[in-house]
Nucleic acid binder design. Structure first.
Lengths: 341, 341
DNA sequence: CTCCTCGATGAAAACCTTTTGAGCCGCTGG
DNA sequence: CCAGCGGCTCAAAAGGTTTTCATCGAGGAG
């Protein structure tokens, strides 16, 4: 037996040392008001002296709370995880949850098998709640999760009805407007757009922002928009296609930095100077990318850290059963100017 | 109260329905041999009928096992997580652990504060074991973890004494030899190397492989090696430096695909054709990168999925307290030929 | 002085599972 | 026929915490 045979101290031990009962010690730990200052101090001292740490299992057993939440990424294309955006979200989640002392159980859902597993797990009462990242249209997982009696906060708008759901979204549309207006303000006349895959709502919202900023109808949209699939390679290809379709283009709004990096490569190869000939604006403001393209990329910042932080905060409120004021939060986006536009 | 007021069934309920005692039901669940076929069937039927799921907390309380393991990434430079390699490892970990039905608690350790938190958590008995990724020299976290009475499996060799440690490493040195020999076999005469940061053992091992394959002494190494810091930008710069130092170079072995992508850009800008003028071999065989560089990158494959799978397997053995045969495992690397060399 | 009230405390129940020690039953060997 | 044994089963204890309910003591009001 590896695991700490040095008998970890129990609450009983703490109580004994502090000269109080287990009940009182427990009250101190849970910051109950009904405890005398002396008792409080004695218990705290004992805790410190013994290096006491509450036994999570015992606590979970009686409180019917696990102290863990699931962080679920539903994504049929595993390779999308190569997007640094994903790493950033995980990192933010790990940090935000650690800060409130709850365990993060990461679940990556790719296949129907994974969905079934996730269903079992979430229904099995192994977590108190969940943070769900499911950007795709008609994602089966969302329907599954919706039926569960489990507090859930979504990242962005999941597809389908939003009734009774809690979510924290970025202002994708607003950011797209910002980007497009900026290009207009530079005097650009032929502005095109590399969109994300249109089965993701964030991509749609960005496209809509672009479209309203320019007042385009459906036909016009078809002429000046290409889907880049949120990948670098896709950005490259979409840019080529647009150069062919709209030879005189002088500006492009790209719906993600990763795609923008690809688009810049294409423009470079095509001999177009950025920003002189073509102004480029990305989306995400993913620093590791945007600061290292040539030229550095002007981009719309969406603060993922902030988004995740809000999601966690919101979920904790749900768990405390406070009646939560707002169910949908929209986080602002801002334009970060660098050299590409 | 959101959380399942539909009173989840307990083992008692299952036992009652199956017409046996709690003890027998428990034995069935834990696959004890001492149970009659009839009882077994009855219990299984009851479990299915009631949709019973064991209560993790209660089980943890009595078995003194949490059913969770920590996956710890220690990395002073948070931005390194932009490396897709990191995402891949996390993904592999999540999958491998889910397969054996244990929860993965992800811990990202950047600062001394994080270290303290990790220490508290790991010492607090919240997990049964840990998988530790700590590639850097003199990482404080390793010393901390070493002292804990906790089964741990390391990814790669952590710095310092390896006594009594369990680890699963990739054959970095062997892979580097493979890459270098390949370049030699192509008839290349002036082969240089872009290394990773030399406070990481994997980078050192790769450098050593390069060095032994070419039989270089210290001075020679200084002449033909540049540190690219395992970043794309670093790869770019290192390549420039090498072009200046060794104008006649005709091959380069780059210690990571991300750096190789940067190096290719530099070579391209310098007007060197790949592979005609300069042959390039990367390391990692990170498909999302290697297949999309121009030209596609020849690279040394290290199978991270496999590595993590082995780590999990090994840790489970440790937990079962089986005396484990080998303490250090070395995973082979292979050369994947594409067009860059 | 007595009766109440109120705040702090303690004893004990409850949470759900695993595991131990004992019991039961039917059989075999003497 | 009996002792003993082997195979299953059960009752009960154990695990560490929170929480309810009762108790105790002090202080205030009458």
């Amino acid at each position: 037996m590896h695991v700490s045979n040095h008998a970890r101290p129990t609450l009983e031990d703490v109580a004994a040392r502090a000269g109080v009962s287990r009940a009182t010690a427990s009250r101190v730990l849970n910051a109950s008001p009904r405890v005398s200052p002396e008792a409080l101090e004695a218990v705290n001292a004992a805790v410190l002296a013994l290096g006491y740490q509450p036994n999570r299992a015992a606590r979970a057993l009686v409180t019917r709370r696990t102290g863990a939440v699931a962080v679920v990424f539903s994504e049929p294309e595993p390779k999308i995880f190569d997007d640094p955006h994903f790493a950033r979200l995980i990192r933010a989640g790990a940090r935000a949850l650690a800060d409130v002392d709850v365990q993060m159980v990461l679940m990556l859902v790719h296949s129907p098998d994974d969905q079934a597993r996730a269903h079992r797990f979430l229904a099995g009462g192994h977590v108190d709640g969940a943070l769900v990242f499911a950007p795709h249209r008609n994602d089966e997982l969302v329907s599954i999760v919706k039926k569960l009696p489990l507090p859930v906060v979504y990242a962005g708008k999941p597809w389908g009805s939003l009734r009774g759901m809690h979510l924290v979204d970025n202002d994708n549309e607003g950011g797209a407007v910002l980007a497009t207006e900026h290009l207009k303000s530079l005097g650009r006349k032929k502005i095109v757009h590399v969109s994300g895959p249109l089965d993701e709502l964030s991509a749609i919202d960005r496209l809509n922002g672009f479209r309203t900023a320019l007042g385009l109808d459906d036909k016009a949209v078809a002429r000046v928009v290409e889907d880049g699939g949120f990948t670098r390679e896709g950005g490259r290809k979409a840019m080529s296609a647009l150069l062919a379709k709209v030879p005189g283009l002088d500006a492009v709004f790209v719906a993600s930095d990763l795609m923008a990096a690809g688009a810049l490569e294409t423009l470079h190869e095509a001999g177009r100077r950025v920003p002189e000939d073509v102004a480029v604006v990305g989306f995400d403001d993913h620093v590791a990318i945007a600061e290292h393209t040539s030229p550095p990329l002007t981009s719309v910042r969406q603060d993922s850290d902030e988004q995740v932080k809000h999601m966690v905060e919101h979920l904790m409120k749900l768990l405390r059963d406070e009646t939560v004021k707002s169910k949908k939060q929209m986080l602002p986006t801002v334009l970060v100017r660098r050299e590409s536009a």
